[in-house]
Amino acid sequence: MLDSDIGILLIEDDRVDIMTVQRAFRKNNVGNPLYIARTGVEALGMLKGVGHEKINPPPGLILLDLNLPRMSGIEFLEKMRSDPELRKIRIIVLTSSNEPRDREAAFKYEVDDYIVKPHSFEEFNRVIATVLAFWEND
């Protein structure tokens, strides 16, 4: 069951990728609020209400890019998992890296999924649909 108040936080620095996600959301008619953070630091600020408006209620899902400026996705994962308040939030890694190293590091921090960004939008659209379906079914 999808509570329409529960939002999704996208942590992504690439504007085209943000647009891709937004477009995929529109295509899939997702009404839940989509919060966007451009860096890991900004995302943490938004989650804890430090320097940014706190996301309330906390997002039910975080879509995380790994290749981020200032604070890498892996570092962000570490912060999240070591914070008792935030550690329960589901995180799905959405990255362009297919490196086994990144994959292993991500799973070490108990991400729910590791999705390599599809090259074509069509595929991306399908992936987002799957993710949302997965989330709704949970």
């Binding site: 085209v16 990728d17 290749n67 362009s96 960004k117 090259h119 074509s120």
Partner: peptide
């Protein structure tokens, strides 16, 4: 290459 070359390429593709 995997990140920085592929990202803009994907953006081009999407756009």
């Amino acid at each position: 290459a995997s990140h920085d070359l592929k990202a803009p390429l994907r953006a081009i593709s999407n756009l």
